[in-house]
Structure formats: structure tokens, C-alpha cells
């Protein structure tokens, strides 16, 4: 829609200048700064100095940090898998409910999302602590004799991440299940495919974009939400996010923190690319 009118041009230009400068100054420039920081030398006084170096990237491969990264990646992958395993049947079941029930159920799903995530993580602590509710309950039932050590473990961090991120897996899955036409399943059965064959050949391929979108929305934050290990994981189960935070705020090693963050950005780019590809495969234009 293009219209020539005296009023429109200045208005349009003002809006475009405002938006562009906001995004350039607060998105593009800062990201370029991070890239620049990652190839500079650490400096005690002004954080950064010349010469340019790839030391920070070399440091990423230092066994000490590599171990933290692999541990973080492992926990993120586990979180994603658990979310997928819980979320996939959940989204499917949800899509089979009546339209009115669905509105209510979706509402119930996003209430936690709108609730302060720190507070929710803290609530988990009440349950998982050594003398917390879960241990008390299990002991009262006589299932265990002494409290299990749940808090400050890898498992606690994964539970915390799953708890915070599950809606982000379910919502994209739900939207693909909602679009999945029932006739396709009937057609598959009609053509002689059993439930398993239908699942493998029809349902999985058609819900793949939802799966990948969910993975993208869970895997990346699962490496960045540093407060979850801080509250539930103790000092041994760190995320990439904890490393970045420590390097920036405590150790003041900016090049290293920046390099770690670029690692996360690259992971994001890779996942976004996979998502686009999967959407194109089933003939939808990727957003």
C-alpha cells in the first residue's frame, strides 16, 4: 500500500529512523562489541586491550572449561529430551481436547510462564531439600529410611530447567498438532499403515518443525539460565551461563566471556537453520 500524501512521509520517516536507530544501537552495535571483545586481550584496568588475539577461543578448549561446557551441554540435552518426552504426548493429548477445554488448558499452561521464574525455582527447593517435602513424604510412606540427597545434584538442575522450560516445548508442539489434520491419520490407516507406521511416517515428519522449534526454545536457555544451578545445583553443576556470568562479573575476563557467548550464538544459528530447513521440507515458508 503506497499512498502519496503530505502527512505520511515525515511520519513514516520518523518511525523508521526511531526503530532503526534503536535496533542498530542496542542490538547490532552491542553484538559487534561482543565479537570485538572476544578477540582482544584481557586487561585488569579497562577490561580490554590490544593486541588482537584468539587466546579466548583457545581458552574455551582448556580441559577445565571444556569439562564445564560438556557438562552444561549434557544437562541441556537431557533437559531438552525430558521436555520432549513429557511435552510431545502432552501437546498431542491437548490437541485432542474439545475447543473450550483447550482454551482453559492453554491458559493453565501459561500461568506458570507469567509467574516469576526465580520464585518457582525457589519453590522446587522447598520440595527437593534434604528435609524437604519430597523426602518427608517418602519417609512417611516408609519407602526410604533416610533422606535422599536430591538438592545440589545434576538431577536437581535438570528438574529445575525442565520445570521452567516445559511450556516452551509444549506450545510450539501444540501448534503443529493443532494443524495436523485428522484426515491424514485416517488416510494413513486407510492405506494400510498401523499405528506405529503412521507415527513414524506421518506424524513425526509433520510435527518436526514443532519439535525443532521446541528444541530451540529449550536447549539454548537451558545453557544460559545461570540462576537455576545457583539455587538448586551447588558449585559443581554449572551452565555455560554461569561461566559467562563469572567471567564478566567476577573474574573480569571479558574476552573469554565473550567467546563463550559467541559459542551460544553459533549454537542458536545452527538450530534456527535446522528449523527453517524442516519447515521448508513440509512446504511452509519458514519465519
Amino acid at each position: 500500500m503506497r499512498m502519496a500524501s503530505g502527512l505520511q512521509q515525515p511520519f513514516r520517516n520518523a518511525v523508521l529512523i526511531l526503530v532503526w536507530s534503536w535496533l542498530l544501537l542496542l542490538v547490532l552495535v552491542p553484538n559487534l562489541l561482543v565479537i570485538a571483545a572476544s578477540v582482544m586481550t584481557r586487561d585488569a584496568g579497562s577490561f580490554l586491550s590490544l593486541p588482537l588475539t584468539l587466546d579466548a577461543y583457545r581458552q574455551l578448549l582448556n580441559p577445565l572449561y571444556l569439562e564445564v561446557f560438556l557438562q552444561s551441554l549434557y544437562m541441556a540435552v537431557m533437559t531438552t529430551l525430558v521436555c520432549l518426552l513429557i511435552g510431545y504426548p502432552f501437546a498431542w493429548s491437548l490437541s485432542l481436547m474439545g475447543p473450550r477445554a483447550r482454551i482453559l488448558l492453554i491458559f493453565l499452561l501459561i500461568v506458570p510462564f507469567w509467574t516469576n521464574s526465580l520464585v518457582r525455582t525457589y519453590a522446587l527447593k522447598l520440595i527437593l531439600a534434604t528435609n524437604g517435602l519430597l523426602n518427608q513424604g517418602l519417609m512417611n510412606l516408609g519407602l526410604i529410611n533416610e533422606p535422599l540427597r536430591l538438592l545440589y545434584t545434576e538431577g536437581a538442575v535438570i528438574i529445575g530447567l525442565v520445570y521452567l522450560l516445559l511450556p516452551f516445548m509444549i506450545l510450539p508442539l501444540y501448534s503443529v498438532f493443532e494443524d495436523l489434520r485428522k484426515e491424514l491419520l485416517m488416510a494413513s490407516h486407510d492405506l494400510g499403515a498401523g499405528p506405529l507406521a503412521t507415527f513414524v511416517h506421518v506424524i513425526i515428519p509433520l510435527t518436526l518443525p514443532g519439535i525443532l522449534a521446541g528444541v530451540m526454545l529449550v536447549l539454548l536457555p537451558a545453557m544460559g539460565l545461570f540462576f537455576v544451578p545457583d539455587i538448586l545445583g551447588g558449585s559443581r553443576n554449572l551452565l555455560v551461563g554461569n561461566v559467562i556470568k563469572n567471567q564478566f562479573l567476577d573474574a573480569r575476563n571479558w574476552p573469554f566471556g565473550a567467546a563463550a557467548s559467541i559459542f551460544l550464538t553459533l549454537a542458536m544459528a545452527f538450530l534456527m537453520f535446522a528449523h527453517r530447513l524442516s519447515k521448508r521440507r513440509i512446504g511452509e515458508e519458514g519465519a
Binding site: L23, V27, L33, L220, M223, G241, I244
Partner: peptide, 26 residues
């Protein structure tokens, strides 16, 4: 413009956080 908005939404918060910190300090 579209992609920049999309990237802001998708990128891990911590990446946005340190990039803004770098800007503010600079």
C-alpha cells in the same frame, strides 16, 4: 529489520545481557 527482531527474541538472554553491558560500559 524483521530478522533483527527475530534474533533478539530467540537469542539466549545472557547473550543480550553481556552485549548490552559491553555497550553501556563503553
Amino acid at each position: 529489520l524483521n530478522s533483527m527482531l527475530f534474533i533478539v527474541m530467540m537469542s539466549p538472554e545472557i547473550v543480550l545481557a553481556i552485549s548490552l553491558l559491553a555497550l553501556f560500559l563503553l
